[in-house]
Design a protein around this nucleic acid. Structure first.
Length: 484
DNA sequence: TGAAATGTTGGGGCG
DNA sequence: ACGCCCCAACATTTC
């Protein structure tokens, strides 16, 4: 073949990129293109934090391609029209890309593949974002897995995932490059520049991903099985946004982690726990592929009737702003707003408060996370919220309600995480800081805290709202524990 | 990847 | 020495 269009989407890397490697192997010339077409993702277009990341990642990839003597062509959607225009302009004979698994994207890509093939072009897609394709892993009865542990066992029983692919040495350019949009013209960055604060915490792009992985292996991996629950510590990998945009692949991670585990037995427990988390990502994508309604609706239909709290809107706003009066939740919500990220233990606590105590619909929480997280990912986000709400695949039972004060004392015993994000509580002691509303006037004023002024009272009474939640769950006909 | 209520056990103080 | 009570620590059940 003479010329191939390499259609890049969320595989913004050069290493272990099957579509790229195939293009380099099979064609004389490769034209890498990214097409900006957010409306093709329906109501789940990337939020502001995601768009900031995407902008930076495209910039990084563009620079990497330049170093190889190539370029990144930027176009606007609709995707099919943009690809057809490029075919016209360049005489390309083929379009290669790596597969994604969100329902609307799957449908779009299927249409595009058909249309291109009808034009006589070679359209080919590759596996790159998941270790196992959703249609390749089935239960004994031939059904999709709906429970994580059997899924994980089945995943481990398969032969090991393929080895990662190398970065191509060269990408041969076309005789004449087609025109490109300027990156700023895609309008990914918001008009009010609130994002410089994100730059302190993240380095989007393939190099940033490699650095995050190295840092994690040096600092967090050995103790990951314990450290992952302590939000004050640097114990998690923070690879989720890099994985979402495909700046690093699960194949690279699978191999690397297994390699260091084999070399150092001290890494075995941490590595095993981390690979299990990687498998949760696989599971989430399988569930989304099999149950495409789950971003918007409960996996099991009877949950549609759940009695959410009337008039929860003001509490939802307090939750979003980190003003619930529950310190561990407020710290998390403020970490989210400031950095585009929240530690996973704190995500579970914050989600539990919103869904079970405030009793706002889980979709409201999912939407807020979607708009504010740099690692917002439709499969992970939908599964995570349905897990918290108790209405999803392998969900936490409805009666599992986190006590934010107990969790705070257990996982941030010296209040380091709380003080980092709630400076107004810094004057309280390690014992006091978890529950300011329980303190007497003297202790509060000694620390310079007035309830309702420097720090809010709890938006809901914990004990009462817990009882109400259990009552509400009982009202579901089939009972809270039953499946399907 | 939970919390709270309830039940059981065993040691120590005490009359 | 013995029975009784209290209570902490742990286990089990329930939501």
């Amino acid at each position: 073949m003479q010329t191939v269009l390499l259609w890049l989407r969320r595989d913004l890397r050069l290493a272990d990129n099957p579509a790229l490697s195939a293009a380099v192997d099979q064609a004389e010339r490769v034209i890498p293109v990214y097409i900006h077409a957010p409306d093709e993702e329906g109501s789940w277009q990337p939020g502001e934090a995601s768009r900031w990341w995407l902008h930076q990642s495209l910039k990084a990839l563009s620079a990497q391609l330049s170093d190889l003597g190539s370029r990144l062509i930027l176009r606007r959607g609709p995707s099919l029209e943009a690809l057809q225009a490029l075919v016209q302009e360049t005489g390309a004979e083929a379009v290669f890309w790596n597969r994604l698994y969100e329902p609307l994207i799957v449908a779009r890509d299927r249409r595009i593949k058909q249309a291109l093939r009808q034009q006589g072009l070679a359209a080919q897609s590759f596996q790159s974002a998941l270790l196992v394709e959703p249609w390749h892993l089935r239960t004994g009865k031939g059904e999709a897995y709906r429970v994580f542990t059997p899924f994980w066992r089945a995943l481990q029983k398969r032969e090991s995932p393929r080895a990662p692919m190398k970065v191509p040495r060269t990408l041969r350019s076309p005789a004449r490059w087609p025109g490109t949009e300027a990156l700023p013209a895609l309008g990914l960055l918001p008009s009010t520049p609130w994002y410089p604060k994100l730059e302190d915490h993240w380095q989007p792009g393939e190099q940033g991903a490699a650095r995050a992985l190295q840092g994690f292996m040096d600092r967090g991996l050995a103790r990951y099985h314990e450290g992952r629950d302590l939000p004050a510590e640097d114990g998690v990998s923070r690879l989720s946004p890099h994985l979402h945009f495909g700046e690093i692949s699960p194949f690279q991670l699978w191999q690397k982690i297994n390699e260091v585990m084999a070399a150092r037995s001290a890494l075995l427990r941490g590595g095993e726990a981390w690979l299990r988390q990687l498998a949760w990502r696989e599971f989430a994508h399988h569930i989304l592929f099999e149950f495409p309604h789950t971003p918007d609706h409960a996996m099991y239909e009877r949950w549609a009737d759940f009695p959410w709290r009337d008039g929860h809107a003001p509490m939802l706003r307090a939750w979003q702003r980190g003003e619930t009066g529950y310190p561990i939740v407020d710290a998390g919500m403020r970490e989210l707003w400031a950095t585009g990220y929240m530690h996973n233990r704190v995500r579970m606590i914050a989600a539990s408060l919103l869904v079970k105590n405030i009793r706002a619909p889980w979709q409201a929480g999912a939407r807020w996370f979607w708009d504010t997280l740099v690692d917002a990912d439709l499969a992970n986000n939908s599964m995570g919220w349905q897990w918290s709400a108790g209405c999803g695949a392998d969900a936490s039972p409805w009666f599992r309600i986190f006590n934010p004060f107990t969790q705070s004392r257990r996982f941030d015993p010296s209040g380091v995480y709380l003080r980092r994000w709630l400076p107004e509580l810094a004057g309280l002691s390690d014992k006091q800081i978890h529950a300011p509303h329980e303190l007497d006037e003297a202790s509060l004023s000694a620390a310079g805290v007035r309830l309702g002024m420097e720090y809010p009272r709890p938006v809901v009474d914990y004990r009462a709202s817990r009882e109400q939640a259990l009552e509400a769950a009982k009202s579901l006909r089939a009972g809270p524990g039953s499946v399907s």
